[in-house]
């Protein structure tokens, strides 16, 4: 099941990349410094959206482990952290490249959204690498679940940053009261790409949760075998 979802996601993002490069309308030179580089948008925004889903999963999974000691929630923590790392890195990378093209600088330390998102991605790097460096156990799970839980405070901050502060990063183009500033074809490609990234990340998380489940079962069987042999 996870494989099917994953392949559907791959197909979708592949198609969205082709649409972004070949079909999506060009933008005006008056609106953008680098009209060609603007097409990064069609993966950058959906990757960020997928990252929010992943960090949400990380938050729920972390809370579920810490407060309910749920094995399923721990698997969600693992899946969410890995997905958050991958999509966070994609967003940061594409954002830096687009920033270099559009703003003349890849990074702006005064921009709240960039920096909170960067911190979230670093948190994901820390949680994934840190967890992989330790044997599985209650201490390991509690430590990294706590980081996953408290780090989540950055997510709403990142989301509302462009609404509250005047910063370099552009504000929302969809889902605003005035209907947004995006034209219909661009919106279509963006929507398709967002759906594809959602399917991809759900597929990846399902695969990861299944693998973690199998690893835990294997560990239990090995512990039993330790006692028997």
């Amino acid at each position: 099941m996870a494989s099917a979802v994953l392949f559907a996601g791959f197909g979708g993002i592949g198609a969205s990349m082709l649409l972004a490069l070949l079909w999506a309308p060009s933008v005006s030179i008056d609106a953008f410094e680098s009209p060609a580089a603007q097409r990064i948008f069609y993966w950058h925004v959906p990757a960020a959206w997928a990252a929010f889903i992943a960090f949400g999963a990380l938050f729920i999974g972390s809370g579920g482990w810490l407060f309910k000691r749920s094995e399923r929630m721990w698997r969600l923590h693992v899946a969410g952290s890995e997905a958050g790392l991958a999509t966070g890195l994609m967003t940061v990378w594409s954002g830096c490249v687009w920033g270099a093209a559009e703003w003349g600088t890849p990074w702006d330390w005064t921009d709240v959204r960039l920096n909170t998102f960067g911190l979230l991605t670093l948190l994901a790097v820390y949680v994934v690498l840190g967890r992989n460096s330790q044997p599985d156990g209650v201490e390991t799970r509690d430590t990294f679940a706590a980081f996953g839980l408290y780090g989540f405070v950055l997510v709403p901050l990142t989301y509302i940053a462009t609404r509250i502060w005047t910063i370099r990063h552009p504000g929302p183009v969809v889902g605003t009261d005035d209907g947004g500033s995006i034209n219909s074809e661009m919106g279509l490609v963006l929507f398709f790409s967002a759906i594809s990234f959602t399917v991809l990340i759900v597929g990846h998380m399902m695969a990861s949760m299944r693998l973690t489940d199998l690893e835990q079962k294997l560990e239990r069987l090995q512990s039993q075998t330790d006692k028997v042999v």
Partner: peptide, 14 residues
């Protein structure tokens, strides 16, 4: 009695 642990990380062992 460690054949079943051949492919494990050392960190997973007692």
């Amino acid at each position: 009695n460690l054949k079943h642990r051949a492919k494990d990380l050392v960190a997973h062992l007692s």
